[in-house]
Nucleic acid binder design. Structure first.
Lengths: 226, 226
DNA sequence: GGCCGAGGTGTCGAATTTGTCACCGCTGAA
DNA sequence: TTCAGCGGTGACAAATTCGACACCTCGGCC
């Protein structure tokens, strides 16, 4: 369930990749032009970039260098796609710090595996410590939530739930998803704890509580703009 | 109060920098040889690197590239030092994504200002969610501590205490410091809670518990090498 | 060796946290 | 309009967490 940006000139390949990654629950966006990369990354805020080195008009390596040169995009992991012939590029890419690479042609399954591996590896290492949403601010480092300047005391479970919701705003979190992420329930348990905790969160958040929307029959959703 | 690695061939400059940064409360380490950079970074885990581009034997730019190419070191911000003449280097460095640069000669005050600025900027964006120490691993994201593969369940307070200790290993944390950071006690309260929690931590950590050293009359200290 | 004080440890009660349950209101489909 | 079911809510009881305290051990100084 990660946001992935696919940068490839060949739109059919992009779409194929996108299709397979979407099936895994990822949120994909495709762009064909290297010039769009920086703005797209800053706007879309992908958690992973799949970058074809064969881009029209400009070198994929240049695009990559620019990604790594900007502190806003530096930490985003990149998987490079290279044609088998471009050995030089591949080496250059890895030297510059690509997180993985794939030589064309490759099977979609292979790509999915690499993506999963990189995400798992990367997500364990970095994450954003502060999440902002309107007047709300989630501070992981100090395990606190602020509504404006006012700190809101949350218990551990409440905080985890809040963090899970805030981290992916505007997406619906299934009851099962939340129970898995926050409580570690892997099988589909019938429990009302989630409801109770949502209630407690809303209570403590006060007016900001209406950032948490109910999606009837499915789960809950955090919205930046209540 | 950040860990800063200074990489400079000229030891007198290193020492000058180190002196001024230490006065600001930072924890500095100096190395003169570019080859030591990677191991030093991985061991010392600095939050900022001051890198002189004039290194004996090898190019500072190469060192920098290697830092950015490794996922373990990629996010560590770098301030580059360049001689005024090396305009080409400076440009190359910025293009590659240095976080700031300084041309020699510079005043210590200037450097301190830059360091402070970069730290403030960077710390707001990312922080390391995982802290490693020997077989121990602190995982902020999931609020867990692992001893090897084995997860150790900690309560919120225990986790905060553990995190505070692990984040600055090899430094002595005063009782007052810990009570302030973990419990928020600002005035000097006489309490034994800290002792009790240290005991509980050691208990739960099992053999790894001897990472936590007692500094008699002062406080506690976390050590990477028990 | 004896003493003093710092720190280790076991235990207890209060406070907090958490999951369950019963009851109710609301929603949306028929 | 009706009704089944989903979700909101208040109450409650079990479990956990936390800080205090008493007692003990150990290190350092005389």
């Amino acid at each position: 369930m990660s946001k992935i940006l696919i940068v490839d000139d060949e739109t059919d390949i992009s779409e194929l990749i996108s299709l397979h990654l979407s099936r895994e629950g990822h949120d994909c966006k495709c762009i064909a032009n290297g010039l769009q990369v920086m703005p797209s990354v800053i706007e879309f805020q992908p958690e992973l970039i799949v970058l074809d080195l064969m881009l029209p008009g400009q070198d994929g390596i240049q695009v990559f260098k620019r990604l790594r040169a900007d502190s806003r995009t530096r930490v985003v992991p990149v998987i490079m796609l290279t044609a088998r012939a471009q050995v030089g590029d591949k080496i250059a890419g890895l030297e510059l710090g690509a997180d993985d690479y794939l030589t064309k042609p490759f099977s979609p399954r292979e790509l999915v595996l690499r993506v999963t591996a990189v995400l798992r590896r990367i997500q364990k290492i970095h994450h954003v410590s502060e999440v902002r949403a309107g007047e709300l601010l989630l501070d992981r480092k100090n395990m606190k939530v602020f509504s404006g300047d006012q700190p809101i005391d949350l218990t551990t479970t409440e905080f985890k739930l809040m963090a899970t919701l805030m981290e992916n705003p505007a997406t619906v979190h299934t009851r099962a998803d939340l129970l898995r992420e926050v409580w570690g329930y892997n099988d589909d348990v019938a429990t009302r704890t989630l409801d109770t905790h949502i209630k407690r969160l809303r209570e403590k958040l006060g007016p900001a509580g209406n950032h948490i929307l109910t999606v009837r029959g499915t789960g809950y959703q955090f919205t930046n703009t209540p």
